[in-house]
Amino acid sequence: MEWKPPACWYEPYWKAKDFKTYVEAQWSIYQSVGGAPAGIADSKARYTGGHPYKDFNADKNDDGMWWVATENPEMKDDPASRACTLPPFWVNNGENPGVPQAIDTKTLAGLAYQRTTVPGTKISTAPAGKSTVNLPTWIWLDKATFKTVSVTASLPGTGLWATTTAKPVSLHIDPGTGDAQTSPASGECTINADGSIGEPYTKGKANETPPCGVTYLRSSNGGSYALKATLTWQITWKGSGGTGGDLPNGTFATTTDVPVQEIQSVNR
């Protein structure tokens, strides 16, 4: 997919009392091994001394959450994954975190988009072996070959979620040579009402024009033409709170080698 996900973000992670338990345990470990690292005094002042928090906001345990910086696990080698450097901060329920890169449904949609995998583009053609000059090659995709794909990303305990949906919408045909005519002329085969693309070839249709196909006008001279079929997937998303929108389309191509022969006729 042609989209770059966020390398890091801030997300709600700790209830107040859980955060207090975790951090105080870390401080105890430091003391047991011979002293606290530099900066721990500032940390204690920040979370317990009123600069700006007192006792980890434990008295507000059900009124909000501590937000933390999170690296995108699939982008840990990207230096940008370390750009979220704010220490844990408190956000009351229903309040906007007020910081760039705070996670929201659109970010979750992007993460779901990043994990969306669609089936490979595998076309059917007839004739399946050699094609013949001036006779159409039929191309189709059966509806059972590719289906709508959905992926959901959510943040447990927050009510935040987003689902991306990838839907196949068209197949573009590139014959691999200028000596050919596509059907339709644009080379863009749209999806049928039943979810298929094109129409399977059946006996007796050799001279008919297929709804999706190509007619080669010149022999490949013992070689073959690289028939490229590119399937476009339309990507949309919806999320909690009535959010939603569009994401960049995905395009996936496959190439099929098509030998084209020329049948010689003899006039008597």
Rank of each mutant, 00 (worst) to 15 (best):
L111K: 00
Q234H: 12
V149P: 01
P200K: 12
Y30N: 12
G223R: 03
G242I: 02
C8Q: 09
P211R: 04
M65A: 13
K167I: 12
A41I: 11
V23N: 04
A80W: 02
T163G: 11
K238L: 04
S154H: 12
Y13G: 00
A41T: 15
G120P: 01
W140K: 02
I191A: 07
K238M: 05
T116R: 01
V260E: 05
P156E: 10
Q101V: 06
G176V: 05
K4W: 10
P5R: 14
G245W: 02
W138P: 01
A126G: 00
V214N: 00
K203P: 01
K130H: 11
T232G: 01
W3Y: 15
P210T: 05
E199R: 14
P79R: 10
V260C: 05
V99W: 06
S224A: 14
I197Q: 07
L86Y: 10
T105R: 04
T254W: 00
T236R: 02
G213S: 09
T254L: 01
N207I: 13
W161K: 13
G157N: 08
I191Q: 12
W9F: 15
T232S: 09
I191P: 00
W67A: 03
S265T: 15
T125Q: 04
G213Q: 05
Y10L: 08
E208D: 15
P210D: 06
Y30G: 11
R46Y: 15
N221W: 05
N92W: 08
E24Q: 13
I197Y: 06
V99N: 07
E11H: 04
V149W: 00
A126E: 04
F89V: 07
I103S: 07
K4P: 03
K60D: 08
Q101M: 13
T177E: 06
E199H: 13
Q26H: 10
Q261L: 13
F252N: 02
G94S: 10
W140L: 03
G50C: 11
M65T: 08
P248R: 02
G245R: 02
T256V: 14
V260N: 03
T105L: 02
A7Q: 10
A162F: 09
G34R: 09
A83N: 13
P259D: 08
K122W: 01
A58R: 02
W161M: 08
I29A: 14
D55T: 06
P79A: 11
D246V: 08
A144Q: 12
F56M: 10
A126M: 01
V33G: 09
I40C: 13
W27M: 11
T215F: 03
A253V: 02
G39Q: 09
Y47K: 08
H51M: 13
I103Q: 04
D18E: 14
A112W: 01
N92K: 13
V258N: 00
N57L: 12
G110Y: 02
W90S: 04
N267G: 15
P73M: 10
K228I: 01
G239V: 05
E188M: 15
V91S: 07
T152M: 11
A229L: 11
G49C: 10
